[in-house]
C-alpha cells in the first residue's frame, strides 16, 4: 500500500528560486491559471467587502448615515462587553459538543449505510430528511417536543419518574436541547460527505485484509479510519467554522417573543448591527470572531500532519 506513504503535497514547502526548472515554472503557470477564476470572483465579490469592513470596524456607523472614525474604540468596547462574553460562552458551549458528536454520528451512519444493508436507500433518505426540512418546521416541532407543559418528552420523563427540565428556558438545558436539534438536523449532511469519502477507499484493501484474516473492527481501524482522515479533517474544520456562527435555529428555538434566551455571537452581531443601529461595532465583533475562527483553523492545519493521511 503505497498510498499512505505518499507525501502530503499540501504541506510541502514551496521551494523558491534559482533551481526552478522549466517544468516547475510551467506548473506554476498552470496553477495560477486554474485558481484564477475562483480567485477573481472571490476578490470581487468577497475581498473588497471584507476590506471595507476592516475600515468600518474602526468607525461608528449607524448604516443610515456616513461612518466616522473612532479608532480602536469598538475593539476596546468588545473586550469589555459582558453581552459579548455571554454570547461567546453560549456559542462555544454549543459548538464544541456539536462538532464532536456530529462527526462521530455522521461517520457511524455513513458506515452503516455504506454496507449492503437492506433498505439502505430508504434509510439514507430518512436520515437526510432533516437537512432539507424548513427551519421553521424544525423550530416548531422541536418546540412542541420540548414543551414543558404539554410536550411528549417531559410527558415521557414524568411517566418514568425522571426530572422534567424546562428545556428551552433554563440556560444550560437549552444548550443541551439546542445541540440535540443541531445534531438531528446536521448529521445527515455529514453522512453524505462521509459516504462520498468512503468511495475513495479502494475495495482491494478490504479484500486483501480479509484474506489476511482481519476482523471487521480491525478493517475499520486500520483501513477505513485512517484513509478517511482527509474527509474527517475537512468536516472538523468546516464544522468549527460553521458552528461558531450558529444563529437562526438557536434563535427560533429559544426566543420568547422578541427576547432571545440564548444569544450566540452572530445573533449578537445581527442585533447590534441592525436592531441597535451600531453596525461599526457589529463589524468589529465580526472581526474578533473571524480572528478566533482563523486561529482555530490554522491550529488544525498545523496539527493535521500528525493525523491526516493523504
Amino acid at each position: 500500500m503505497s498510498r499512505a506513504e505518499l507525501p502530503a503535497t499540501s504541506t510541502i514547502a514551496i521551494t523558491s528560486g534559482r533551481g526552478r526548472s522549466r517544468q516547475a515554472r510551467l506548473e506554476m503557470r498552470w496553477g495560477f491559471l486554474m485558481v484564477a477564476p475562483m480567485l477573481i470572483g472571490f476578490s470581487i465579490f468577497f475581498l473588497i467587502a471584507l476590506g471595507s469592513s476592516l475600515i468600518l470596524g474602526f468607525t461608528e456607523w449607524k448604516m443610515v448615515e456616513s461612518p466616522h472614525w473612532i479608532g480602536f474604540q469598538n475593539y476596546r468596547d468588545v473586550l469589555r462587553d459582558p453581552d459579548f462574553r455571554t454570547a461567546m460562552v453560549n456559542t462555544f458551549a454549543i459548538a464544541i459538543p456539536h462538532v464532536i458528536l456530529r462527526i462521530t454520528i455522521g461517520l457511524s451512519l455513513a458506515i452503516a449505510l455504506n454496507s449492503k444493508i437492506r433498505f439502505r436507500t430508504f434509510y439514507r433518505v430518512v436520515f437526510f430528511l432533516p437537512v432539507v426540512t424548513m427551519p421553521v418546521a424544525i423550530g416548531t416541532i422541536w418546540k412542541w417536543l420540548y414543551d414543558p407543559g404539554f410536550g411528549p418528552i417531559n410527558g415521557f420523563l414524568g411517566r418514568v419518574g425522571l426530572p422534567q427540565p424546562e428545556w428551552l428556558t433554563d440556560r444550560w438545558w437549552a444548550v443541551v436541547a439546542v445541540v440535540i436539534v443541531l445534531l438531528w438536523s446536521g448529521v445527515g449532511y455529514d453522512m453524505i460527505i462521509f459516504l462520498a469519502g468512503l468511495q475513495a477507499i479502494p475495495r482491494d484493501y478490504y479484500d486483501a485484509a480479509a484474506l489476511d484474516g482481519a476482523s471487521g473492527w480491525q478493517q475499520f481501524r486500520d483501513i477505513t479510519l485512517p484513509l478517511l482522515t482527509p474527509t474527517t479533517f475537512f468536516l472538523t474544520v468546516i464544522g468549527i467554522i460553521y458552528s461558531l456562527q450558529v444563529f437562526d435555529l438557536v434563535y427560533v428555538m429559544t426566543r420568547i417573543g422578541e427576547v432571545n434566551q440564548l444569544p450566540t455571537v452572530v445573533y449578537f452581531i445581527y442585533d447590534e448591527g441592525f436592531r441597535n443601529f451600531r453596525m461599526g461595532y457589529a463589524i468589529s465583533v465580526a472581526w474578533v470572531l473571524l480572528i478566533i475562527i482563523l486561529i482555530f483553523t490554522l491550529i488544525q492545519f498545523r496539527l493535521q500532519k500528525r493525523w491526516v493521511n493523504y
Partner: peptide, 16 residues
C-alpha cells in the same frame, strides 16, 4: 489619514 480612510469607506458606501 483616518478621516480619509473612513471617508473612502463612506464615499463608497453612501451617498447618504
Amino acid at each position: 489619514m483616518q478621516v480619509g480612510a473612513a471617508g473612502a469607506a463612506a464615499g463608497m458606501l453612501a451617498r447618504v
